[in-house]
Design a protein around this nucleic acid. Structure first.
Length: 281
DNA sequence: CGGGTTTGACCTGCGC
DNA sequence: GCGCAGGTCAAACCCG
């Protein structure tokens, strides 16, 4: 409605003319590398920030970006975002992607997904696990694992503290794709499924789920697909500037199979990405 | 038989 | 340093 608004850590306000109302909901108290945005209309809670890369990987990734050439312009985009708190609507890859568009061109990917998630048993000592940009959805649904157009393989399930519901871990079945997602039910409202995506698909989705309509998750996931490089900060450090996501107006709520709900107080997965201080809605 | 799920063990980060 | 909780691995199992 009023357009996105928020304040980045440096105090810079940002606005856009989008039809969504994103509000800065908080920031990561631990790494301070991400901010959280909540869309009151779509009830989508989003987390935006820079990847935190160890210097080794930063170099490595910078190289791969350089080789990729052209699209994305790793450091350039990063500095742009970092310097002026631009909203992602100015990001070509976001604005150009309608709900029909795949996150990336599948075959000739300019930027291959950086292998920043080092397997724990291969990871060298001192190299930290790196988190990619994440965004979360709260969806009212009886089904835990919502169709989003991609194929996922479950690789783990864990009981979550303070929640009677386990958290499931999924990985994209595409071997070249590093995207993961976590699915968990809200302990406050069992009808609400909280899905958190981490990373970005480097390939096309396998198709639309359930007869052609797409959910908020799909629409949002497809709109929020800036090149990975844009979440890369060359110096490898945590910084962060508020980057509100593209609006989700492409999906009228009546088209959504599972209606979204308002943000409840929550623990568990939300507790993971949402600082306690902002969970008062 | 291939692909997906389950589940216990293991690893890692973090707070105390 | 220790314990806890989250995250991941991988063998066993299931299913089409």
């Amino acid at each position: 409605m009023e357009g996105k608004e928020g304040i980045d850590p440096a105090g810079t306000e940002f606005n856009s003319d989008s039809s969504s109302s994103w509000t800065l909901a908080g920031s990561d108290s631990v790494s301070d590398s991400v901010n959280y945005f909540f869309d009151k209309e779509s009830s989508i809670l989003s987390e935006f920030g820079w990847n935190i890369l160890q210097p080794d990987h930063a170099d490595e990734f910078e190289r791969s970006c350089g080789e990729a050439g052209g699209r994305g312009s790793c450091s350039g985009t990063a500095s742009n975002l970092g310097g002026s708190a631009e909203v992602p609507t100015s990001n070509p890859s976001v604005t150009s992607s309608s709900s029909e568009d795949p996150p990336e061109k599948s075959t000739d990917i300019g930027v291959k997904p950086p292998e920043i998630e080092i397997p724990s048993r291969v990871r060298k000592k001192g190299q930290k696990r790196v988190r990619q940009a994440r965004f979360a959805f709260m969806t009212k649904s009886e089904v835990d694992h919502l169709e989003d157009g991609y194929r996922w393989r479950k690789y783990g399930q864990k009981a979550v503290k303070n929640s009677p519901f386990p958290r499931s871990y999924y990985r994209c079945t595409n071997s070249k794709c590093t995207v993961k997602k976590r699915v968990e039910r809200s302990s406050e409202d069992p009808t609400i499924v909280i899905t958190t995506y981490e990373g970005q698909h480097c390939h096309q989705s396998v198709g639309f789920p359930r007869g052609g309509f797409i959910s908020h998750e799909v629409a949002f996931a497809r709109q929020f697909n800036p090149p990975i490089s844009q979440f890369y900060r060359p110096q490898g450090i945590q910084l962060h500037r508020g980057i509100p996501p593209a609006p989700t107006t492409t999906v009228p709520s009546h088209q959504v199979g599972e209606s979204t709900s308002h943000l409840p107080k929550d623990e568990g997965l939300l507790g993971d990405i949402v600082p306690p201080g902002m969970r008062s809605r």
